Amino acid sequence: MSVKRESRLRRARRARFKMRELGAVRLSVHRSNQHIYAQLISGEGDKVLASASTLDKELREGATSNVDAASKVGALIAERGKAAGVTKVAFDRSGYKYHGRVKALADAARDGGLEF
Rank of each mutant, 00 (worst) to 15 (best):
R11Q: 10
R11S: 10
A12L: 12
R13A: 15
R14E: 15
A15E: 08
R16P: 06
R16S: 07
R16I: 13
R16F: 03
R16G: 03
F17P: 00
M19Q: 11
M19F: 15
R20P: 05
R20G: 08
R20M: 14
L22N: 10
L22D: 12
G23F: 12
G23V: 15
A24F: 14
A24E: 13
A24N: 07
V25L: 06
R26P: 10
R26Y: 07
S28K: 01
S28V: 15
S28L: 15
S28M: 08
V29F: 04
H30M: 13
H30D: 01
R31V: 08
R31A: 11
N33S: 12
Q34C: 10
H35S: 09
I36W: 11
I36E: 13
Y37G: 05
Q39R: 07
Q39P: 09
Q39H: 14
Q39T: 09
I41W: 00
I41H: 00
S42F: 07
G43K: 12
E44V: 08
G45C: 02
G45W: 03
G45L: 00
G45P: 05
D46P: 07
D46C: 00
K47Q: 15
V48P: 01
L49F: 11
A50E: 04
S51Q: 14
T54S: 09
L55A: 10
L55C: 13
K57Y: 02
K57F: 08
K57N: 13
E58Q: 14
L59A: 04
L59S: 04
L59R: 02
R60Y: 10
E61N: 11
G62E: 12
T64K: 10
S65V: 01
V67L: 13
A69I: 06
A70C: 10
S71P: 04
S71D: 05
V73F: 08
V73R: 08
G74P: 03
G74F: 03
A75H: 11
A75N: 13
A75R: 12
L76W: 11
I77Y: 03
I77E: 07
I77K: 06
A78T: 08
A78V: 09
A78D: 04
E79W: 06
E79T: 10
E79H: 11
R80Y: 01
R80E: 05
G81V: 06
G81C: 06
K82A: 06
K82W: 00
A83W: 05
A83R: 11
A83N: 13
G85R: 03
G85L: 01
G85Y: 08
V86K: 01
T87I: 10
T87C: 09
T87M: 10
K88P: 02
V89L: 01
S94W: 00
S94E: 00
